[in-house]
Structure formats: C-alpha cells, structure tokens
C-alpha cells in the first residue's frame, strides 16, 4: 500500500502524470490523484473530458501513454493482470450475456474470478435478492428492462466482493427509482469499506455520495478536494434564478454590464442565474429584463451547491453537460 494521503487510511489507487493520446487528441493529459482505502472518490466532468479513458487505463482496457498507476500497492502501469482480482468493474453499459439468465450471468462472472460453484451460486442468489431481481433470476438477460440490466451489471461487478469498485456512470439512462436504489447500494458498499471510484456527470449524485471529487475537463484535472471544502467556496454566495418566457440571448452580458458586482450565467431551459457575495436585489434585475423585452415568469433563491462550484471552476454549464450526455445516449465513449 502507498502512504496515507491524510494519515487516516492507506492509498489503494495512486495515479501519477497519467497521459493518453488518440492521434493528435490528448484524451488524458497529466492526471495525478490518489484514492484512500474505503474512500468514495468521484471523477466528475463533461462528455469527452477523459473520465472513461482514465478509468479504462486504471482497469486495464487501455494502455497509458505515459505516467504510472499503482493499485493495492502494485505497479500495474504496464500489466494490470496482477491486480484485476482486486477490482470490481461496472461499465457504463451492460456487458453481460443476453443469452444467459440473470443467475447464469452472475455465476459466470463469479467463475471468472475463480469462485467455486457452491460459493458463486450462493453469492448470486444473495445479490439477486439484494438487488430486487430474485424473481427475474431465471429469466434471460435479453428480457430485462434497462434498470434491471443496470442493477444486474452492478451485482456482477461485486460478485467476488472486490475491495475496489470502479463505477462508470452507474445511474445514466435509468428510472428515478432504480437510480435511487443504486445510489443507496453504492453508499452501503462504501460504508462497508469498499473503495469506490465513481465517474459521473450528475453533479448532485457526486455531491450526495462522494467524500472527495476530482473535476476533469479536456483531459486535465482542474480541481480535487473534499466535497465539504468545495462547498465552502460557495457557502456564502447568494444565487437567484429567473425563469424567462423566452431564451434570454445576450441578457447575461447586459446584466453584468449594468451590475458589475453580479455574475450571471444561463441555466437549464429559459433560465438565468445571478450570483453575488451579497443578497441579490431582484427589482433592478427584473426591470433590466423587461427593458430588454423579456418577461420573468418566476424568480427564486437557489441554495448554493456543488453545481455552482463546478460552473465556477470549469466554466462549463452543468445543465449543458447533462443535456449533451443524455443526447449522446450512452455514458462513455470518451
């Protein structure tokens, strides 16, 4: 094991100056971070930022161009095989076998990690029950819903009770109830001591689950810190959100020109957000919107969250990131 980052727990994932190019494109560019044992570490960034490429290098599906990776104290930069038994891997899409049943898939995955027949069958039944799939266990995966496939893919990732779990966009594209259940399962696994490396583009998911977060943009980590420290940056901010009747093109520029102490940016739908270190006076902003020919349908105060930190640090609108991701349909492909 490596040295503890903060003296509390040994480092189980240590990445130094990791880089990867695809032709002229620097997909990952000098990424350095470490994850302590038992930590739930979030890797947050927009589509194409390099999250999946970084994860693929960690798990052995991609070769690093340069830099080093140490997992469980073993240098696996060139050869990940000696540490793959420590890892549970949940990709962004199901990679299970449609021709096998849910139970058959879990047993097969257990066998890949050397589990004996009795052990893997018992564990498969336990996981099917835990993930609410006991009744569907004998059905072929091809007949499962997206949420069921996602749950089974996570179950397959932890069939051998790995000490380190890699999760790539675990809740993308599934219904709210399944997503909530999966988040609870991730939190439970972390509470039981599993180290979790989570890539996501859902900022609220990362905020809710992770202890520390790395923001990655265009292949580079722009900030790593605990969620608490990151939120400290915005705790004293005042944010007002204005819902407009039509897209407010150029409105933010007008707001910041008239009120230089305000920061203005577009949010989801026809919304703008106005941010200040002091309470925002709504009246002057409303008048400016009306002068510009716009109409405000609703104004409300927003409690500062990690989303504001993300926007401030990366300059990327979180909603734009979410919509881009969902439009692209699938989570990875970076």
């Amino acid at each position: 094991m490596g040295l503890p980052a903060d003296g509390s727990a040994p480092i189980v994932i240590a990445v130094r100056d990791l880089a990867k190019r695809f032709g002229e494109v620097r997909a990952v560019d000098g990424v350095t971070f470490s994850v302590a044992r038992g930590e739930l570490f979030g890797f947050l960034g927009p589509n194409g930022a390099g999250k999946t490429t970084t994860m693929n290098m960690l798990i052995g599906l991609a070769r690093p161009g340069s830099g080093s990776i140490e997992i469980g104290g073993i240098d696996c930069t060139r050869d990940p095989k000696p540490v793959q038994h420590l890892m549970g891997i949940v990709p962004d899409e199901s990679n299970l076998y449609p021709e096998l049943t849910g139970f058959g898939n879990l047993c097969f995955c257990g066998a890949l990690y050397g589990m004996g027949r009795r052990d893997r069958e018992a564990r498969a039944r336990e996981l099917l029950a835990l993930f609410g799939l006991a009744e569907a266990g004998e059905r072929k995966l091809g007949g499962y819903s997206k949420g069921m496939k996602r749950r089974l893919t996570i179950a397959a990732g932890i069939i051998h009770a790995p000490p380190i779990l890699f999760l790539d966009e675990p809740t993308t594209g599934i219904d709210v109830a399944s997503a909530r259940q999966i988040r609870q399962l991730i939190a439970d696994l972390s509470a039981q001591g599993t180290t979790v490396f989570l890539t996501t583009h859902y900022i609220e998911e990362a905020e809710r689950l992770c202890r520390r977060i790395a923001f990655i943009v265009r292949g580079r980590i722009v900030r790593i810190d605990t969620v608490a420290n990151l939120l400290d940056r915005v705790r004293d901010r005042y944010i007002m959100e204005f819902a407009l009747s039509a897209p407010g093109a150029g409105l933010c520029e007008a707001v910041t020109a008239r009120f230089p102490h305000l920061r203005c940016y577009a949010a989801a739908g026809n919304r703008i957000r106005v941010e200040s270190a002091e309470p925002v006076r709504v009246g002057p902003v409303l008048r400016l919107v009306e002068e510009s020919g716009g109409e405000v349908l609703e104004a409300r105060r927003i409690t500062p969250s990690l989303e504001e930190v993300f926007v401030e640090i990366t300059g990327i609108e979180s909603e734009a990131m979410r919509h881009e991701k969902e439009r692209n349909g699938r989570g990875g492909g970076e």
Binding site: P91, L96, L112, Y113
Partner: peptide, 14 residues
C-alpha cells in the same frame, strides 16, 4: 460488439 468480451479481458486471467 456487445462488449461482453470486455468482461473476459477484465478478468484476472492471462
């Protein structure tokens, strides 16, 4: 194509 081969590549088998 269905990515299930990835599962084999990620297993701790030479």
């Amino acid at each position: 194509k269905g990515r299930s081969f990835e599962r084999l590549l990620l297993a701790p088998i030479r």
